[in-house]
Design a protein around this nucleic acid. Structure first.
Lengths: 344, 344
DNA sequence: GGGCCGAATGTAAGCGCTTACATTTCTTTT
DNA sequence: AAAAGAAATGTAAGCGCTTACATTCGGCCC
């Protein structure tokens, strides 16, 4: 239906049409749109009038081709299918919109190969800058990005020792604080359910954070049971069941994220356990779900919106060349809620 | 950092570079990439070799400008900040990716004016087709879209009587089934918490569905209490509290979506009510949250993934011109869980 | 072997815009 | 009031690709 006719020219006005109507050259029209202060007010008014009369809006492809710049930022997140990144990205989008840029979102389904592909696709599409989650990826990708001179900002992580600037929080320190709190509640038999660590530096850092706290408490960090599983409620539940089978069972289960924690919580309840009397459970991220469970989930709150905003602003500065490019560290906060108590 | 140098030419190969290296014309290179069957195998191999050796990837802007087609589909959803659309969009993206197209997502924050702006932005960006949520919008927008001959598909709604083809479900019928189930459980004092209906045809249809069922049960549909509120857990809770204040309080609260229902559930529990003994609560959408609450939420399951897939496929057919363009109706399913019981 | 035809390839004209540079117009300055 | 300089505008050359049309090539028929 509605096949494109060849005479689109009649339908879609171009800068030449505007120029003709306003009695100026196309260069002036272009300037009116891109650098209004460089053209006399009187002329500008004429041009703008023509623009609105014709309903003109510049052709994006042509503009990008000529200007060698797309005003587009690409972001690649592990998954859209989940709430963690959504809120942050919404903020990114709003912030970029304010700067006149557009956000292009792709997702990698937690697969490094797919992420690499998406990165290339976004660059081919002319993304002026890229926002990536976590530092870890094939050096070849970074080499490619450097060769193409595409500014890259890492979000949802903070590690100034890495080559790319990042805006986020220190996953290890945050989790260490959480684990310390668990220890402070009196727990000694602690276990961890983590997302897959292989391609996920955030997950790894969080586990390290638990080890830190455990070691500080005088326990053996190498004896810490760590279960790895997929990012899904069900998976968290399955891991939990496996984890509490041996005796003595842990008195506290620290989960690498809220989704796993909620799975664990459900599994505990289905096993007839009372949380937190029989076992404590903690999460990480503070997604909306966390306040809805009964009891509510003790977790680490991450300022997603703020992070998105700051990351967007900083990345755009990198693209436009004004402003510094260092890393930025945000603070997380413990949210102690119902699922954490003292051991029996 | 990494300022763009003017000699990008040295860094980024163009079709001319590939042509030179392969010893053919640029036209042949272009054909190899866009219509491989139109070029001899031997030539093609030479060209492809050059492509990989040079690490060539076509410039998106130039390609779109010349071909008058961007291979891009734009989608505008009310909000990214929420899980309803995420799953569906993920499916849309995957399906489009399979067809070689890209998805561009924007969000309108439930504001019609913003939506209109985003539509224009996506069209200016050259979106080959648009996926919109719900039928209702300013006729002027539709006129604009028609003038520009941009194919439009409506998703998350099904109404073949509307001018634009849609892929989705019948919100009214689905909600009517839910309400009928509530009635069948013996409820007579029923109330509704709905999202704002003004700019939201889905919300309106759902309320109508409740009225249908109520009328069928021999009750007065005009006497049905309907509370309208924002799309947020807290808002649902506030509405609930207001709703149960008068006496006699309703024995069942039908919510227009799961988010409101979860707010209502929480409010009920904070009020010391037992759900479903003291009051029944139902939702709509079957988001992940719905299975996590205690008791689990009775709701209407919507096949988001399937809908996204089908919508994407159909819209792309509209864009490429092959295939029919009628509407497609998907089935929803009642998920009767813990929050629905018989009245005391 | 000449003529014909279809397939493969090449030539070159844009696609709609930006921008370096040239030209014109207006301010200043002396 | 003329010269010099700055500001505003115009001219035109691309940006990297696709594609209509022209050309070449090779196979086939008579």
């Amino acid at each position: 239906m509605t096949p494109k006719t060849p005479n689109l020219t009649e339908l879609v006005p171009t800068v030449a049409d505007v120029a003709r109507r306003a009695g100026v050259s196309t260069a002036t029209v272009s300037r009116c749109l891109n650098a209004p202060q460089r053209v006399q007010v009187k002329t500008r008014d004429k041009v703008m009038a023509a623009v609105t009369e014709l309903g003109y809006s510049p052709n994006f492809s042509a503009r990008s081709l000529a200007a060698r710049r797309t005003n587009t930022i690409g972001a690649i997140i592990p998954t859209m299918d989940n709430a963690i990144f959504a809120r942050g990205l919404q903020a990114v989008q709003e912030e970029l919109g304010r700067a006149g840029a557009t956000l292009l979102v792709a997702s990698s389904s937690y697969q490094p190969a797919l992420e690499a592909e998406q990165i290339r696709a976004l660059v081919a599409r002319g993304a002026d800058g890229l926002m990536l989650i976590g530092h870890q990826r094939d050096p070849e990708i970074y080499a490619f990005l450097d060769r193409r001179q595409v500014p890259v900002l890492v979000a949802w992580a903070y590690d100034p020792s890495q080559p790319k600037p990042s805006v986020g929080f220190d996953n290890r320190a945050a989790m260490r604080a959480m684990a310390a709190e668990v220890v402070a509640h009196g727990h000694r038999r602690i276990a961890v359910i983590s997302a897959r660590q292989a391609d996920n530096d955030r997950a790894r850092e969080r586990v390290l954070g638990v080890r830190d706290a455990v070691a500080e408490a005088g326990l053996d960090p190498t004896a810490l049971p760590v279960f790895e599983t997929d990012y899904a409620i069900e998976a968290g539940g399955a891991a939990f069941k496996e984890m509490v089978a041996p005796s003595p069972a842990p008195t506290a289960v620290i989960c690498g994220n809220d989704v796993l924690a909620i799975g664990a919580l459900r599994a505990a309840q289905s096993l007839g356990m009372d949380v937190p009397r029989d076992i404590s459970i903690t999460g990480f991220d503070d997604i909306e779900l966390a306040t809805v469970t009964t009891p509510a989930l003790t977790t680490v709150h991450v300022p997603h919106r703020e992070m998105g905003e700051l990351a967007a602003r900083r990345l755009w500065q990198m693209v436009t060349g004004d402003g510094q490019a260092g890393s930025l560290r945000l603070e997380t906060e413990l949210r102690i809620r119902g699922t954490l108590g003292a051991p029996a």
